[in-house]
Write a protein that binds this DNA or RNA. Structure first.
Length: 580
RNA sequence: CGGGACGUAGCGCAGCUUGGUAGCGCGCAUCGUUCGGGACGAUGAGGUCGCCGGUUCGAAUCCGGCCGUCCCGACCA
């Protein structure tokens, strides 16, 4: 028969905490391994995870921190639906633009519907009810499910298809007002990440399909991440490599005052091979020629031989999403040669875009658009018809910081937050206007600001764990303290532990008592895996001296504390860490 | 979308080549010994072998189709 009802208090023996001894087979990231093993999350399908009780406790604490900080800058919480009709997404243009990750379906009346991947459209719909400048500024937000059909979810909670996001939206009379809201969010986000126990680096970023003029990402350094950022330790310049720029040393070309000269290069297909073979063709003296198909048309892209293309820069500059490398047959049809022998000299009728690192360069080497032939002595601006110049180069670690000239570092990071100045893109599409002081209709300036709850949980685990498991900071730990009863058949120990448990609850500590009839080693290992910051060990050995042991998860330090003062002492330590 | 692998008990896996009573480890239940750093013994419960179809006296195993998952790449807030 069931016993122990009702299980109101947090007793491990009555809780659903299904810890596992083995790593899940496919786990690569630490958050994936430990959140599954610790019984925080379970996978339902690719990119969809159920939150078990421990995971939910962390989730709620993270959400509460976010609420407090957004409320503190004037946020008003709402809750918008997850299933949207087609119409608002037609208005914004995103029904067609974000093909792929946007899930569309129909209801019984054959009406087009979609799963919300973000909520600009619906907040915009509501914002059309704003009528007067006296109502501005506004800051609205909600914590709501997003669904994005990512081609490849990975890394446990790092990249998923269904997730909860706090997204806020601001509405202002002018761009100066937007700047204020943006700065407030910047400060609020900084506080949130610091309360979560993470060091977040703010970087300028590509806006992607959000559009808008400016965006800042908050990045946490981690090998498990998916983004690279350029970072200057000297002046704190920081930017996503999708956006980062650097200063290059000037190159002085040796004089060459003749026409370009053809020379045979049998079998040579790569920049490195050409540089090895010919002394005058060092990689930085070659022109890299890439054929891309952009919006359906072939485009020739020119970069310095030792430089790499950053596709996102192309996408941002050209404001399109239809960018892909050309296929072999498309390349030969266009230029009459295969990749490895391509160049831009005397090419007609093809749009040519060049990276500014090629400006003013002469006496360079490039493909002759005939297999096994190259050209030397090429002057970029004399011998080629460049239609457009813009930066599309991926910067490299060690290059000079654009602000101070010191060497840049490149770090792998997790994107934990992203804030956008949307400008008037959505307000124009939705007709969000208010009357100003003179009664004239003015278009409203918008911003949008997102934090993924689960991804932040994952990022905390990635940046705070050891070989034993997770190490939660007090503000978001599933429990602040655990009482480990070493010997469940020792009546004195059990009584002391129960009394301590009640005392800690009375002190307002979020505590769980491990009253399972398990061997001590199992209990210690589980508390460590789960990452509870304080463990209080209660057993006959300590009680003989009138003490319990307080063990800190972070550094493993063990401190004997007199039983009578243990609750007050642990409660005080926890309180001092709650602020984050 | 391209390449590779996989789907058998709650979890991790073997069995499949060569068709014939469905196995192992962990976990779970009961009992005993043990128990301040992941114990041991005994007994036991638990599986439509991803789904559908075919071949066969007989299919986890062979064949076909479908579904799902993971990895690498492409793609992508």
């Amino acid at each position: 028969m069931p016993s122990g009802y009702p299980a109101l208090a947090m007793r491990w023996s009555r809780s659903f905490i299904p810890t596992l001894r083995e790593d899940p087979a496919d786990a690569e990231a630490a958050n994936h391994r430990y959140l599954v093993r610790g019984g925080f999350i379970r996978r339902l399908m690719a990119g969809s995870w159920s939150m078990l009780p421990l995971g939910m406790r962390v989730t709620k604490k993270i959400e509460q921190i976010i609420r407090e900080e957004i409320d503190a800058i004037g946020g008003q919480e709402m809750l918008l639906p997850v299933v949207h009709p087609r119409d608002p997404w037609e208005k914004s243009g995103r029904w067609d633009d974000v093909e792929g990750i946007l899930v569309k379906f129909k209801d019984r009346r054959d009406t087009d519907l979609l799963l919300a991947m973000t909520h600009e459209e619906i907040f915009s719909t509501i914002a059309t009810e704003l009528v007067s400048y006296r109502q501005l500024p506004q800051l609205w937000y909600h914590l709501q499910t997003k669904f994005r059909d990512e081609p490849r979810p990975r890394g446990g909670l790092l990249r998923v298809r269904e997730f909860t996001m706090k997204d806020s939206y601001t509405f202002d009379i002018d761009s100066a007002g937007l700047d204020v809201q943006f700065d407030k969010h910047f400060e609020a986000y900084s506080k949130i990440f610091s309360r979560l126990g993470m060091k977040a680096i703010a970087v300028r970023a590509s806006s992607g399909w959000m559009g808008g003029s400016e965006s800042v990402e908050f990045m946490v350094e981690s090998e498990a991440g998916e983004d690279d950022i350029a970072y200057c330790p000297a002046c704190e310049y920081a930017a996503n490599t999708e956006k980062a720029i650097s200063r290059l040393p000037d190159v002085v070309d040796e004089p060459w005052d003749r026409e370009p000269e053809r020379f045979p290069t049998p079998g040579i297909r790569t920049i490195a091979a050409l540089a090895d073979e010919f002394e005058f063709a060092a990689a930085d003296r070659q022109i890299k020629s890439l054929v891309y198909v952009i919006d359906g048309d072939p485009v020739l892209l020119l970069l310095r031989g030792d430089h790499e293309l950053m596709e996102q820069k192309l996408i941002d500059e050209l404001k399109t999403f239809e960018v892909r490398p050309a296929h072999d047959d498309e390349i030969s049809a266009l230029l009459g040669a295969h990749a490895g022998s391509l160049g831009g000299v005397e090419v007609q009728g093809v749009r040519i875009i060049a990276d500014p690192a090629l400006r003013g360069r002469s006496n360079m080497t490039t493909g002759a658009n005939e297999d096994d032939w190259h050209l030397r002595g090429v002057d970029v601006e004399r011998d080629m018809t460049i239609d457009q110049w813009f930066d599309m180069r991926l910067i490299q670690a060690g290059e000079a910081c654009p602000q101070c000239g010191e060497p840049l570092e490149v770090k792998r990071t997790i994107e934990v937050g992203h804030i956008f100045k949307l400008g008037t893109k959505f307000s124009e599409a939705f007709g969000i206007t208010v009357a100003d002081e003179s009664g004239e209709e003015r278009i409203v300036w918008m911003g949008s600001y997102g934090i993924g709850v689960g991804r932040n949980m994952a990022a905390v685990v990635e940046s705070s764990h050891d070989e034993k498991g997770m190490i939660w900071p007090v503000p978001i730990a599933p429990f602040e303290a655990a009482i480990t009863v070493v010997k469940m058949d020792d009546e004195a120990a059990v009584a002391a532990a129960e009394a301590l448990y009640e005392a800690l609850r009375a002190e307002g500590v979020d505590v769980i008592i491990d009253d399972r009839d398990e061997r001590p080693g199992v209990k210690f290992a589980d508390v460590e895996l789960i990452g509870i910051p304080y463990r209080i060990t209660v057993g006959p050995r300590g009680l003989a001296d009138g003490v319990v042991e307080v063990v800190k998860r972070r550094d493993g330090s063990v401190e004997p504390v007199a039983l009578e003062v243990a609750a007050a002492s642990v409660a005080a330590a926890i309180r001092s860490e709650r602020a984050g």
